[in-house]
């Protein structure tokens, strides 16, 4: 009987506390009935017979899971959204940490490459842990609400509400939308750094961009906010329509013009030549930043071209 006691205790350990006593009691009654039946067939049972009977019952964890199936923390239906949100937020946090650590590295004379990598890794891990926990908790607590919404959406629909079976390009990939969302959020956070960054780091952060560049970017913030709204609109409809394409063209055109204007303004960076001594000259850095901005401008330019061609097909 010692084996039976052990088995029931092992099953109970895998159960929620509220159900341990009740299920343990019932399981014991069922096992004792089986032992009685087996004794009637075979006579006195030894330890091996009982052991075989318990093995046939299944591993205690499996038995416990059959009584109380484990509930996933995140609902399966929410996993794609959860993964995309996680990648987006962790991506933004990594980029922000890169900016912060790079700024600190460039502004410091005694910080070596090892110090830079250590700062980047430790800072990112710290913020990633917070981000991961916050997102997971948000999904856990809003899980049931989202399930209700999905159930309601699945119950109230009409075939005519479905989008037309258009060519493949018309469907907007969720990862593209989240990449755009992440980019816009990252830009907003970098531009408005002084508003939310802690006071002692402000001096260091302000050295990355010049006041002039920061001012231009701050004036460009409404465009970035419109970009965010546009991405959220895409997330809702998930299909390119004429209106959405026109909005995207206008948005990317504006973004391209702002980046080109920024590339032509000088100075771009707030760093002083002394801080860069022994690394690069100030002119070299400014030139590199300008070339980088021209390259960055090619991305919205490409999207303007792509969406214009798509618009003609509709």
């Amino acid at each position: 009987m010692e084996l039976v006691k052990r088995y029931i205790a092992a099953v109970q350990r895998e159960l929620p506390q509220a159900k341990q006593q009740e299920i343990g009691r019932e399981l014991k009654a069922n096992i004792m009935d089986q032992i009685d039946a087996l004794t009637e067939q075979k006579g006195q049972l030894n330890e091996d017979d009982i052991s075989t009977l318990l093995v046939n019952m299944g591993h205690p964890r499996q038995v416990a899971w059959q009584f109380v199936p484990p509930q996933p923390l995140i609902q399966t239906s929410s996993m794609p959204l959860y993964k995309n949100t996680l990648f987006m937020v962790l991506g933004i946090l990594f980029l922000l940490q890169t900016v912060e650590t790079t700024t600190a590295w460039l502004s410091s004379f005694d910080m070596g490459l090892i110090g830079f990598l250590h700062g980047l890794a430790s800072g990112f891990i710290e913020s990633a842990c917070f981000g991961f926990t916050a997102i997971t908790l948000a999904f856990v607590f809003t899980g049931s609400t989202r399930l209700d919404e999905q159930a309601s959406r699945c119950n109230n629909w009409q075939p005519k509400d479905l989008p037309k079976a258009e060519p493949g390009w018309q469907y907007i990939d969720m990862s593209d939308i989240f990449t755009d969302l992440a980019t816009y959020l990252f830009l907003l956070l970098v531009i408005w750094y002084p508003l939310w960054f802690i006071a002692e780091s402000q001096a260091a952060s302000s050295s990355l961009l010049s006041d002039n560049a920061r001012l231009i970017l701050q004036w460009a913030s409404p465009v970035i906010v419109l970009g965010l709204v546009n991405s959220l609109w895409q997330l809702r409809v998930r299909i390119w329509s004429k209106a959405l394409l026109i909005a995207n063209i206008l948005l990317n055109l504006t973004a391209m013009l702002i980046v080109l204007y920024l590339a032509n303004s000088s100075p771009l960076l707030g760093v002083t030549p002394e801080q860069w001594q022994g690394v690069f000259s100030h002119a070299q850095v400014e030139h590199s930043a300008m070339v980088s901005l021209f390259i960055i401008a090619l991305f919205p330019a490409w999207e303007v071209l792509r969406d214009s061609l798509r618009l003609r097909k509709l």
């Binding site: 019932e26 399981l27 069922n30 046939n56 019952m57 299944g58 499996q62 038995v63 059959q66 009584f67």
Partner: peptide
């Protein structure tokens, strides 16, 4: 039907 299925 095995016990692991029936009892739960």
């Amino acid at each position: 039907i095995d016990e692991g299925t029936l009892y739960p």
